[in-house]
Amino acid sequence: MKLICVAILFVSAIGLTSAELQCSQKELKIPKGWIDMVNPCVESMRNQIEEELKASMRYMAMGAYFSQDTINRPGFAEMFFKSASEEREHAIKLIHYLLMRGELTNNVSKLIKRNLIPSTTSWANGVSALKDALELETSVTKKIRKVIQKCEDNEKFNDYHLVDYLTGEFLEEQYKGQREIAGQISTLEKLMEKHGALGEWLFDKKLQGAE
């Protein structure tokens, strides 16, 4: 009786393997010497990906707020939605950089938290949202500088190329972006000094035409 059972199991196992698809392929032996990034640099780059996406969702909340009929600032909304998508692009750029350096071959599933719920979802007016945006960018700049420090001041390995990339591409965009927002705050605050509602309305129309 036992024998029959074993035989049945054996046959069914054969039946299973013959129907099994060859989904995975054999282990590869690719030289790994070229993969030269080290920790904590890699770790801080991985974290920065989520930071960019968090910034993205904060802009998303601003876009949603200014889209409402009772707020009705389509120019602001469009600008913030655009910023949200730009921040997502930054995250993707960082991902591509790591992939280029041979990273992200494992632990990718936990790279991004599932939902990055924005904490603030309403603003007193356009100026306060712009000020929030400027503070957000300032904090992102600081975080990128920290990544650079981790990748540069490393006895094991000074990552010249990544430091150059972050400095030339990311910091460049941060500083230009911050200057732009600061200028917008200045213009809008001056406009609103004596003509609050009219000032913001005019500024919004100007933003709508900025496309």
Binding site: L53, I95, G102, L104, V108, S109, I112, R114, N115
Partner: peptide
Amino acid sequence: VNHHFIRSFEYLLMATHFANYE
């Protein structure tokens, strides 16, 4: 809307995995 955001991030991770050198 939120479900779309979550799926968007998941698909991004799936794409990332296929883009590694292995």
